[in-house]
Design a protein around this nucleic acid. Sequence first.
RNA 1: AGGACUAUAGCUCAGUUGGUUAGAGCGCUACCUUGACAUGGUAGAGGUCGGCAGUUCGAAUCUGCCUAGUCCUACCA
Length: 923
Amino acid sequence: MDKTFNPQDIEQQCYAEWEQNGYFAPSGSGDPYCILLPPPNVTGSLHMGHAFQHTIMDALIRHRRMKGDNTLWQCGTDHAGIATQMVVERQLNAKGLTRHDLGREDFVKKIWEWKEESGGNITQQMRRLGTSPDWTREAFTMDEDLSYAVQEVFVKLHEEGLIYRGKRLVNWDPVLHTAVSDLEVLNEEENGHMWHLRYPLADGSGELIVATTRPETMLGDSAVAVHPDDERYQALIGKAIKLPLTDRLIPIIADDYVDPEFGTGCVKITPAHDFNDYDMGKRHDLPMINILTSDAKINDNAPAAYQGLDRFDCRKQLVADLDAQGILVKVEDHKLKVPRGDRTGAVIEPYLTDQWYVAVDSLAKPAIEAVESGEIKFVPENWNKTYYQWMHNIQDWCISRQLWWGHRIPAWYDEAGAVYVGRDEAEVREKHNLGADVLLRQDEDVLDTWFSSALWPFATMGWPKDTPELATFVPSSVLVTGFDIIFFWVARMIMMTKKFTGQIPFKEIYITGLIRDENGDKMSKSKGNVLDPIDLIDGIELETLVAKRTSGMMNPQDAAKIEKRTRKQFPEGINAYGTDALRFTFAAMASTSRDINFDMGRVEGYRNFCNKLWNASRFVLMNTEEFDTGRAGGELSLSLADEWIIDRFQSTIADVEAAIADYRFDLAAQAIYEFTWNQFCDWYLELSKPILQDENTSEAQKRGTRHTLINTLEQLLRLAHPIMPYITEQIWQRVAPLSDVQDTSQSIMVQAFVEYDEAKRNSKAAGDIEWLKQCIMGIRNIRGEMDISPNKPLSVLLKNAGAEDERRLAATQNVLTKLAKLETLTPLATDEQAPACATALVGEMELMIPMAGLIDKDAELARINKAIEKIEKDMARTSGKLSNENFVSKAPEAVIAKEQAKLDDMTMQIAKLNEQKETIAAL
RNA sequence: AGGACUAUAGCUCAGUUGGUUAGAGCGCUACCUUGACAUGGUAGAGGUCGGCAGUUCGAAUCUGCCUAGUCCUACCA
């Protein structure tokens, strides 16, 4: 074995073997355990959030697989309508073409080509992470099966009247020329203006002042509204306004919606371009005057002067004209929320169009109940509040998109515009008795991507066919995802799965935190703080990293800033840490918090941990490979240390299992780390050396220790495997044949997980070794503080050893002498006067190191004083408690006894320390 | 406006139903190339648990208020 662990050497080959051997597929026996991968965008690439969540899912899957469950990790990708279409469109644009130059059919063909080419990118990256989904079942939302399910759902919902078509105001992205859902619109506060306009009464008897943040919409005004109880305007209700710049007369209406306290208490109403105004327009039966084209230019309904102008150019022109005519009263700076498309960043327009909707009320009800009843559980639990809040205010879902990439809506129109919904044209004709002479054309639009991903839990299992997978893996066990898609995806899956299978889609929803950069900022291309998980695995040169971060910027002027930042943060580039270190880092960060600041220092620390495990294994193998480990039988005589490490390991198993059951991978990782480094390496390996290296120990003792070494390591590897698959596999292949594992022909990943065994606990050994550790640490402390070389053998005297101390001493004298580097260890007779010594306390026993020639009087006095001070501080608190009448009378007996014991112990320690102090001071 | 969350060592974070001497990793200081490991070892320094008040015999932990920050939802023209 190499002296250091080199992850690059093994990972990819190891993965290929797993995949070839078919280990990822469900075993077909055991309890079903299923995780649905949130399908990433097919043309996307792996980011830190994916890597984090995929690590957790893989750890869960590997854990359950080893426990013997029938595990399925259902993977696949999403066609991501808007995002994917944009990518390919941008490529065309670069060649000076638009999608319209190609036409729909060729454009869609182009996207499929692009998907074939780059669609495997993210799944290849997932393989680098060591994830173990069943690739043979990999699904794509536009696959034939899934498309069939989409169609089926659409038709059935339509038959039930739950899908309908209607002309409504939608969020319109004028760049993409499509409607988008509420969730795809981001509302950010921006600096804008408030324009105050003078609207004259038609009869010339006066005027009203209205205010607006979007003055160009006045061209579509169809009323001015005031509050019905507003005394200022009572007389004006019902009168008409002469709308400036147009020749229209619009009424003054009364409506509760108007807040009389705000502004002038008069509101201009533009039903075709504002959601609130739209509702009011419906209530008052106002005309809906659309003044925009689909790319947000002014249309023919506006005065000729403005027709064809872009909305923002129009705004400038119109404000200037109003100003010139004295209609503009004033302009104020005003902060307002501007709706922007989450993909394009374009300002979204409320726009009147025909769209398809899902009526969600009846679907939402059972979906809410599924969480309320506890059938579905959020982890951490309080995310259910977020879920309820949205579900109780849910709006009908606009599912049509004016795109070319996606599932075409299965609806046909005849020449009269009548609409027919069916699985295909033939079915439509048959169902509605439409002869061949009736011309039908299919709806041009496609469905929202989330419509198909909402079917993921059952469509990937073969629905609408009745398959064994449906019966076995619905509901799935747990969904691991981020809070940002609770509405987009999680809620919709619950609604659809309930509706079409009658089942819940998953029993638990584990909501992970969001990975941020080291300063707590969201990682984004424009900030230039994005980390690529693959770069952490393979490492990356500084220049390559700079180039990667600064290429393809939306704002090229950010590049210099990003370059500077990158060079400062990674002057040497990024080291290759390997997959296991990265995965362990993710596991260690998976606590309950919402935001996770990614700290490179931790990756390095866990890389070191991998190396530690590697080297410990090297030591174990060096001492077992050429020797008898008891695999074939033979007498095993276990040392105290052997019994102790077995006990500690059992305790670690229990901790890890409890942590995984709670999705606390941070605690699981910590338990593994602590055991491996602080118990196994720091103590057990050291304790085993005297036994293995001493000629006087018997063969049975050596065999016992070798057996414990190799088997503890073997089990530790299985315990750690779900988090660190590669290094554990690599080491296990060499370790297992020396251990008690019988069938070592296969991978560690299909071995049984380690099981906690109460019978292996041993509190006596645990107590004895803790005592031994205290003795050693006491002596090391004196060495450290007194600057005595670790190499200098010491003669130590023992005072006040009780019967238990003597028993322990007899059992451990050999290792104690070796590990504390002692020359002699001599008990002091009760009446014997000790020389001046530096002393370490272990319980009531004193370990004394004679000072002559070694220890400076003042230094030892200072050390003692420090110890006394520390104890006295705590003692004051404890004795204060015990002298408090209230405490003694009200606290539980056990607590009082504990405090009393603490006080007794501290009193004893202080007495001994004072005694020492006096002896030394008297020198 | 409503809702949720966060505040613990220089940094990144643990701390289970109130009872510990408040922990870990990184970083820091001193010493150590000892035979698994310098991606290491040994010892050590470092915190009035954001602030104030309350409940309690006892609060990092429970309650209220305040401060700072983050996020979500809905928004007034």
